[in-house]
Design a protein around this nucleic acid. Sequence first.
DNA 1: TTACTGATTCCACTCAGTGGAAAATAGGAT
DNA 2: ATCCTATTTTCCACTGAGTGGAATCAGTAA
Lengths: 253, 253
Amino acid sequence: MAEKAAGGGVQSVERVFELLELITDAGGEVSLSELSSSTDLPLPTIHRLLRTLVTKGYARQLPNRRYALGPRLIRLGEGANKQLGALARPQLKHLVDSLGETSNMAVLDSDMVIYIAQVPSPHSMRMFTEVGRRAHTHDTGVGKAILAQLSNDAVRSIVARAGMPTPTEKSLKTIDELLAELDLIRERGYSIDEQEQELGVRCFAMAVPNAPTPSAISVSGPVSRVDEHFAEKAVPLLREAVRSIAEELNLTS
Amino acid sequence: MAEKAAGGGVQSVERVFELLELITDAGGEVSLSELSSSTDLPLPTIHRLLRTLVTKGYARQLPNRRYALGPRLIRLGEGANKQLGALARPQLKHLVDSLGETSNMAVLDSDMVIYIAQVPSPHSMRMFTEVGRRAHTHDTGVGKAILAQLSNDAVRSIVARAGMPTPTEKSLKTIDELLAELDLIRERGYSIDEQEQELGVRCFAMAVPNAPTPSAISVSGPVSRVDEHFAEKAVPLLREAVRSIAEELNLTS
DNA sequence: TTACTGATTCCACTCAGTGGAAAATAGGAT
DNA sequence: ATCCTATTTTCCACTGAGTGGAATCAGTAA
């Protein structure tokens, strides 16, 4: 078979989600043959899996015979969002109201972070981060805040799997740099993304302790506004926000 | 073996989505045994399917061992959302071309509506509604059109959760006023936002019947242009547009 | 402690899923 | 129009992925 990664997972389920991800990656619309060249699955197999999705409403077939994501996925996505995002959003809103900068919440998903909630800044110049988007851990505020809660071994294996791209010259380049940075974060209790993801953008982030899924929240904006003075106001507010979120989480777990 | 009613669907794929729907129905969090009593699947089978979902990030296991929807579903949901919007956009475009006013499509997201597509009016004076923006149900045309398709009980609980702010003096102020208005909407088949959201702005909206997610489309503009005469042209066009959208949806559901 | 409930793992059986090959259909090109 | 090619869809015999009964393990209460 393909890999040792079998691990007892149900093959057709894994495959069907792989297909859904590919459709999403392709911008929401693909032909059968495009899928078969992106995977190494035989064409009839892809067709049968998609057919199942289509009859259940999780995929749609367009008049041009291409396949798209189906409307029933919306509910599921919202449900997932609701779980974590709903209880965090009021806190993010409060941060934005107090600080004037965009606030995000993200969770760890195997070896990347996923943004699950966002309250945009009222400023016209602001970050553009989409809910649902995946990002690396080593070059984002939320990512580093989450990593700082894990063991160094866990961090090593995550970074080994995800790699360490360097989107800007400020990005951390080696695992050792990263581990040193994480020690600093553990000590002071919050992380800083110092233009590591995008030049001109600074971000302060803090992990949510004891979350069922490793999670963190952040505030971010242009370096001109998000400076040391900003941090003095932001850090206590972040601390209060994660405390409040953690409290709500523990009610249901 | 299953009956021939299966229709060629892949069993484990159908089952896995049935499980995800059940988790959503249950409010986003279930135990294994709760699932086994809602389905007639044997417990080990459920467990294995969930395990596959968990390792891939489409489900999460909480500390209390219960299962919840996973973060990777968010991206798929967002993707599907965009698709739905794309499907409706040609119809919205047609409305704008015929009527000269801004047209929107929105879906219900728990207790608020989310605008998922928009085609702006060519006029310089026009509504400013952002795709992705959330709005209340009781003071918007699309919101009321959607509510009119639900039971009064469902409406009550939505409004109870979301509240009933009154952005203008024309806004509906009580749940009873709203329910009376909904009866009227059910009878005539479309809703009117009579400057309830913003003074000077009127809006005609109609629900998309049998949509997988409760949805509605609208045309809106300044009261000076959007009057009774406008309605005479707009209502038949809206009717045709929702019919057309519903038809496209039903091809795949 | 013990008894109980619910979650997880095991494993032999077998039917659901697979994929090669063929048929049908769409889309050009002439 | 007709032929040709690319792509999608259906068919079906083989088989190993998935199943589910039974056993085990982990929590919780008494």
